[in-house]
Design a protein around this nucleic acid. Structure first.
Lengths: 165, 165
DNA sequence: AGTCGAAAGTTGACACTTAAAATATTTCGC
DNA sequence: GCGAAATATTTTAAGTGTCAACTTTCGACT
């Protein structure tokens, strides 16, 4: 079982342009490489220790916070992925007996997905480990630096939102 | 033509743990969401304006800096993806007449991939646009903030490298 | 009552990703 | 020289991701 991960996207363009422009590119590449490295580590650990994948872990995480379950559409909205994508991931989680999908609403179109007990227990073990891994990777960053990063990344996020390309 | 993108991985675990641990998780999620949003935008623009994908763009970018071409293995090393992955992407670029793959070395195992003239011209148009998009998304971030981010992300990178999980 | 459109989900075609197996070629030890 | 290890690449199986087309169901309107 394996999971895909994006490549070190679009490194080093080195085209002419204003200094700000070049700095933007460099920053983007550094941002990307940081998050990709962390993501790869997490994927690899999930695979090694739990024989699972990040998307499945994400679905379990979303369900863990909703004892009443979520519909397929709510799941795809929560994870920001397409509807058809969720279908496949949930199907695999069903095979693993980690979730169940029922049609109990009066509206027969709606399918509700819930964690099974096994799913809840499995997820909790995964989540503990996941937290450990992330914490360890950030061990060399001080609290002050993390705070600064949180603020700066919020600025980036606002900039992105307000400058649609 | 479309390209996959990772989901908003593993949001909000909210398990017990030291404050640093929770802060790490939050920072990780913010980092991830920032880079995912930018990456999605870039993918969408590449698709709309050039009917291409980010992996193909990445391969063209790697080749553009090597007039003598790269072997398949060099390409996969440059992009940090698997060997088999490169095979498929290069095949599509060949179909689009953007690159050529030749076996001109005395070692017949080695395939050398080069940009065609069309590939070079196409990539340059893409790269200009790519730079514009990124620059625009970072328009709301000052030079000082970008500088701080570069430094802090370097710290994160070191932390990751020195704390293997 | 009957129809028409919107909404929820699934399916299919294609792209990308990995790891592992298979293929082809070279190199090295004897 | 010849067979085994090493190297370069492709192929394969499984998972993830998109979008578009399709099915089923619901709601609303005539």
């Amino acid at each position: 079982m394996t999971t895909p991960t994006a490549a070190p996207r679009a490194f080093a363009e080195k085209l002419g342009g204003a200094p700000h422009s070049k700095a933007s590119l460099r920053l983007w590449l550094r941002l990307l490489s940081c998050s990709m490295i962390i993501e790869r580590r997490v994927r690899a650990r999930l695979e090694e220790e739990f024989e699972t994948t990040l998307p499945r872990f994400d679905v379990l995480a979303a369900l863990e916070r909703e004892p009443d379950g979520l519909t397929m559409s709510q799941l795809s909205a929560a994870l920001l992925v397409s509807n058809g994508n969720i279908t496949g991931i949930v199907n695999r989680l069903i095979e693993e007996l980690l979730v169940i999908r029922t049609a109990e609403s009066e509206d027969k179109r709606i399918a509700t997905v819930r964690l099974t007990r096994k799913g809840r227990e499995t997820f909790q073990r995964m989540a503990r480990k996941h937290e450990e891994w992330v914490d360890k990777m950030f061990a060399g960053v001080t609290d002050t630096q993390m705070e600064q990063l949180m603020k700066l990344l919020a600025t980036v996020r606002h900039s992105i939102d307000e400058n649609p390309v």
